[in-house]
Write a protein that binds this DNA or RNA. Sequence first.
RNA 1: GUCCCCAUCGUCUAGAGGCCUAGGACACCUCCCUUUCACGGAGGCGACCGGGGUUCGAAUCCCCGUGGGGACGCCA
Length: 464
Amino acid sequence: MTVRTRFAPSPTGFLHIGGARTALFSWAYARKHRGSFILRIEDTDVARSTPEAVQAILDGMNWLGLDWDEGPFYQMERMDRYKLVIQKMLDDGTAYHCYCSKEELEVLREQQMSQNLKPRYDGRWRPEEGKVLADIPQGIPPVVRFKNPKTGAVAWDDLVKGHISISNEELDDLIIARADGTPTYNFCVVVDDWEMGITQVIRGDDHVNNTPRQINMLKALGANIPQYAHLSMILGDDGQKLSKRHGAVSVMQYDDEGYLPEAVLNYLARLGWSHGDEEVFSMQQFCEWFDLDHITPSAAQFNTEKLNWLNAHYIKQADSTTLVQEVSKRLQSKGVSIAAGPELSKVVEMYRERANTLNELVASVVYFYQLPAIDEAAAQKHITPEILPVIKALADQLAVIDWSAEAIHGLIEQAVLQHALKFPKIAMPLRVMLTGGAQSPSIDGVMVLLGRESVVSRIKAITG
RNA sequence: GUCCCCAUCGUCUAGAGGCCUAGGACACCUCCCUUUCACGGAGGCGACCGGGGUUCGAAUCCCCGUGGGGACGCCA
């Protein structure tokens, strides 16, 4: 049977990191088995769904490069279909009307809670052989409930967690259509997974408890039961559940912060899944290797340090043109013009091995295009009164020599010898004067790129 | 409270009864490289939640604890 997986987010916010991983695994599974990956937008919660959120999800998927073969399907556009199925279930007797008001249910719930019972519907409107139902109250539009089996157990072999079995006694008759006739989540999922021919449902493990209900409905409809794979959740860097308090929860925020999609993808792939000792791999490789057998069933804590390491790796590996474009875009948005400075590609080559993120790279390279702010502490430490005349004299020579790294290096060496100093004694003050700080690539290389004019004027601005 | 799930270095993980004196990666520490900081290279520190079984043998299987998480909506 051809594999068909799906990613089914509800558009109530951006695509967060947990959702992205679910999408990634679902996508990879389809790719691995040359099946289809379907995108379905679960937007039946009209009050909370927004078109902006739909767009945010699409943006996130696109940024990561997770392409889908079918969809996006919108559940709101499938209302007619759901209503037909509900009517059929009503006709078949696998669903029934319930006239309980929300208030009644609230009372019931409180009673059960106070007795330390699991709150659930007591089945008062459930038709039963020989049971006499109360008179239908006036003016209360009924909801439709699924007639869940009362005995036995629902079990499935979860592709991640193994065998899971839940007694039907734990389940109640869930509402599948609201009083206004609109279908609810658990029901739409069932109809969609069925009609879209989903073979593997790969989703977050917060859905484990929905699975037995869904399987029961699938059975009532005579549908095939897909396989289920429940992925554990991703915890924040602090080990706490991911929430709005954790800054970077939207995948697009990783873009903003200067992470490459390859790095995020590689990191996410490795979070909860493994292939022996492999740490760094392409998505193509991932799709070949990916399987559900090597997914960890326990929750995983997000680790920004490791993401940084991977990101640094991908920055080093990145295609030069792409990298330059990214850096250029980011410089531009910071209002830094590169027109008057050195060729950006050379600057990027000089710095790409030193940055964890594109933003770090950008920040460390700004001084080529703008006068840097001088770090006070560094200046204090390295620009000493004794060295000032030496540097000043050097500047005069720099103004006239050949402009090459070799010549500049030779000049510094010469000064070093002449004044019986160590190389850093001269390199460090130069570094501070030219770049603003005490860290940079080799100083002669920096000077060559910066250009004679900038070098001399930046030195003179300080030495006078 | 009830039900369900989970449990190996600080973190992500390898591990399907002997290959485990528990492997890799990030982080951390030391050293090397060096013109500072990075990069890179070589080392190091560091874990099977506890208790019972099963077995000749258990990180691996079973049970019980403990701890963590999830679910219990006319949300998805």
